[in-house]
């Protein structure tokens, strides 16, 4: 039944990874369709001579499209949970022909007053060269459990669970039976390693570091990237420098790549 398909707070752990999503190469038709769907016909995205005149090798893929990929990633994972906040920073330009892979990881989970439960998810996207192109953060609110959802949908007050109570329940659980956690949609089914086109963990180290447009992200102290967008770099030790964005442009990728399928 449908409840089993929900994602519940009790099943989410800090560090959980979202199944990566490899998008098909972005081509000019998709850019055109996207501009049509959003109503944003900025000439840098639709007018090749204009873009070249401005010093770019070709039209640019709108940043909002890359943000849309991140949105798709989290919507799939959250299965109906309510998103409170979604922020993204466009670190590097996406070009026609690029293959973008988006990923995410649970950065924090919080018990809030009055039986509200929130998770913060770091999300980011890389191109086929393993360069970070976009990074962001999502804060979503989840039901604690199926029981909590049933109560609230029935008009009752939310289930209030404290971290101590959860701790205790988990301890009991691990004493009696093997599985430490309720298996309800706990983990992304896909093993992340499978889907990766390129070694993305190694991303930031190699070569000229992909550098953010104007990343002034102060190195965040480990705890809580609460409701802020753009938390610390999602990829381990991304060189959060500053960036001459548009000049040092990668030669455009051959728009031929046949890659990317969902799931």
């Amino acid at each position: 039944m449908l409840l089993a398909r929900q994602l519940y707070f009790e099943a989410v752990k800090v560090g959980d990874e979202l199944p990566p999503l490899v998008k098909p190469p972005v081509d000019r038709s998709q850019v055109a369709r996207f501009c049509g769907a959003t109503g944003d016909y900025g000439p840098l995205h639709v007018d090749e001579p204009f873009a070249r005149n401005a010093g770019f090798p070709s039209v640019l893929v709108p940043g909002m499209l890359a943000m849309g990929f991140l949105g798709e990633l989290v919507t799939d994972w959250l299965r109906g949970a309510r998103v409170r906040r979604f922020g993204a920073r466009f670190v590097k330009i996406v070009w026609p022909g690029d293959v973008v892979t988006v990923r995410g990881r649970v950065a924090d989970r919080r018990f809030e007053a009055g039986g509200r439960y929130a998770v913060d998810i770091e999300v980011w996207g890389e191109n086929q060269r393993g360069e970070l192109v976009v990074r962001g953060a999502v804060t979503a609110q989840l039901f604690y459990s199926g029981d909590d959802e049933t109560r609230q949908r029935g008009g009752q007050p939310p289930l209030v669970v404290t971290p101590a109570e959860e701790e205790e329940r988990l301890a009991k659980l691990s004493r009696s039976t093997a599985p430490a956690r309720p298996a309800v949609g706990t983990r992304p089914a896909a093993a992340p390693a499978k889907v990766q086109p390129a070694k993305p963990a190694a991303v930031p180290q190699k070569g000229a570091p992909p550098v953010p447009v104007q990343a002034k992200v102060p190195p965040r102290p480990e705890p809580k990237p609460v409701a802020k967008p753009a938390p610390k770099a999602p990829v381990k030790k991304a060189p959060a420098k500053k960036a001459p964005a548009p000049k040092s442009v990668p030669k455009k990728a051959a728009p031929k790549t046949k890659a990317g399928k969902r799931r």
């Binding site: 900025g42 709108p62 309510r82 979604f86 922020g87 920073r89 447009v213 104007q214």
Partner: peptide, 26 residues
């Protein structure tokens, strides 16, 4: 949030806009 008329009224001349960052609260 697309409001071409409003943007036009800001008189930005021929300069083009490049989105650097976006955040949405719901």
């Amino acid at each position: 949030a697309q409001n071409e008329r409003f943007r036009h009224s800001l008189d930005l001349g021929t300069r083009s806009l490049l989105l650097g960052e976006a955040s949405i609260e719901y």
